[in-house]
């Protein structure tokens, strides 16, 4: 699996934060769901996406 270099990860970090601020709380979930679907389509691998969903479910508290 390819990984983002730190500098790029930092850019994505900021871009995502700003986009979440921009859409506002009401549309936040919709926006994030769309984003996941777009990225899932780009990953093109069901198991990898399921693994990511599983990982994101960890340690939410």
């Amino acid at each position: 699996m390819s990984q983002l270099p730190l500098t790029e990860l930092e850019v994505v970090y900021d871009a995502l934060a700003e986009a979440i601020n921009q859409v506002g709380t009401e549309q936040e979930s919709l926006f994030l769901t769309k984003l996941v679907l777009l990225l899932a389509n780009q990953v093109g691998n069901q198991a990898q996406v399921e693994q990511a969903i599983h990982t994101a479910l960890l340690d939410l508290q």
Binding site: S29, T33, K34, L37
Partner: peptide, 17 residues
């Protein structure tokens, strides 16, 4: 509902959904 709404929204521009 969220997933369905996300698909509706994407469908305007994204053929894959």
């Amino acid at each position: 509902r969220l997933l369905r709404d996300a698909v509706l929204s994407l469908s305007l521009t994204q053929a894959f959904v």
